[in-house]
């Protein structure tokens, strides 16, 4: 039964993504008005606090707020250090980590609503034959040039600017600058029919500028996702944040060395984030900081057991030749499928 419903890991992942998209965007319909916030509090990377009726809390929101309201102002007031700084910050990090232990970086590849939306747009792009663009030399350039951006966004927009706002050095309009440009905030609120977040504040220059960047970024990635796989994930500070802890989670990608890897490279073609290291390296280096644990590399590895998704000692999925043969019949490693072609009807 399960085998018929989910013949491939990709089909199973799509089902999980769609369920999580519905839960993160319309969760309160299922779990109730208050419970949605409680679940979000317990699983802090669930969805967006800007959606005030459904779910709430992405770990980046309390992190910015604590740098802004707690740490920055706490340093200024220099009192109640334990309650103002240590406990709230540890609670955010620990509750995030409690969630993280269960699924690790698979949040990005299996749960994130924006990731799901980008993949759905990419499917449309593949179906309609838009040419795939990759971060490889000769096309969009080496992927290494993009990778530092997510770290810069994490440091500057999640940590530094909120802290400076809390210290009183920067404007309070910079209190949660990452949320102000976050395209997931726009996606999840627009999916509930709420255009409030798309509208720009006109009485605050900084808020207007940040909102304009966010809206432009959202528009950009909606179109870019037709040709570029997961365009925003590459610069997402949550991916950087997750990668800080990826070695601590039992859920991980494991690759063992194999002589065919030097000439193959199919796994890196399958990788939506163009991680070349998955083909070139093994061991710890193969589980790269950009990996979202989507499992496509394992699906498209034609060697038995070379790439595995493991939780602790248990292999949840392992590559295999027979699986690979079935998989490529339905979809090429880069996600290409038989495109939809429009042709004029022939008249007799």
């Amino acid at each position: 039964m399960l085998k018929a419903l989910f013949p491939t890991l990709a089909r199973f992942r799509l089902a999980v993504q769609l369920i999580m998209l519905a839960l993160t965007v319309y969760g309160s319909v299922v779990v109730g008005h208050y419970a949605a916030e409680k679940i979000s509090g317990a699983l802090p990377a669930l969805s967006c606090a800007y959606d005030m009726q459904n779910s709430a809390y992405c770990v980046l929101i309390p992190t910015q707020h604590q740098f802004h309201h707690r740490i920055g102002e706490g340093i200024v007031r220099a009192q109640q250090v334990t309650f103002q700084i240590v406990i709230p910050f540890l609670m955010t990090v620990l509750s995030f980590f409690a969630f993280f232990v269960v699924i690790g970086k698979a949040f990005c590849g299996w749960v994130c609503p924006l990731g799901t939306i980008q993949e759905l747009v990419a499917r449309i792009g593949r179906r309609f034959g838009f040419g795939l663009r990759r971060f490889v030399p000769g096309d969009l350039g080496a992927v290494g040039r993009v990778r530092p951006v997510k770290w810069l966004l994490l440091l500057a927009l999640v940590f530094l600017l909120p802290l400076l706002a809390g210290l009183g050095v920067a404007s309070h309009s910079l209190g949660n600058p990452y949320c102000d440009i976050c395209p997931s905030r726009l996606a999840t609120t627009l999916l509930t029919g709420n255009t409030e977040q798309l509208a720009l504040r006109t009485n605050d220059g900084i808020a207007f500028a940040l909102g304009a960047i966010g809206d432009a970024l959202f528009g950009f990635l909606l179109v870019a996702a037709l040709a570029v796989r997961q365009p925003f994930c590459r610069i997402c500070p949550l991916l950087a944040w997750n990668s800080l802890f990826q070695r601590l989670s039992p859920l991980r990608l494991v690759k063992t060395p194999h002589e065919a890897c030097a000439k193959c490279g199919v796994c890196s073609q399958a990788c939506p984030l163009d991680i070349a290291e998955i083909a070139q390296a093994h061991g710890r280096k193969a589980f790269h900081e950009d990996c979202t644990l989507c499992g496509r590399c394992a699906e498209y590895c034609p060697q038995d057991g070379v790439i595995q998704l493991k939780w602790g000692p248990w292999a949840l999925f392992a590559s295999g030749r027979e699986y690979y043969k079935r998989r490529v019949k339905a979809e090429l490693p880069d996600g290409s499928v038989k495109p939809v072609r429009f042709a004029a009807r022939e008249h007799a």
Binding site: F130, G131, L198, A212, V223
Partner: peptide, 29 residues
């Protein structure tokens, strides 16, 4: 204004939709 910047972003991504010649590692079909 929000819609304007959203559309502006979309326009900025249009060059990515141009077709490319296949590159060497075979990723482009």
């Amino acid at each position: 204004w929000g819609a304007f910047f959203g559309v502006l972003g979309m326009a900025g991504a249009l060059p990515l939709l141009r077709r490319r010649k296949p590159f060497k590692d075979g990723g482009q079909i």
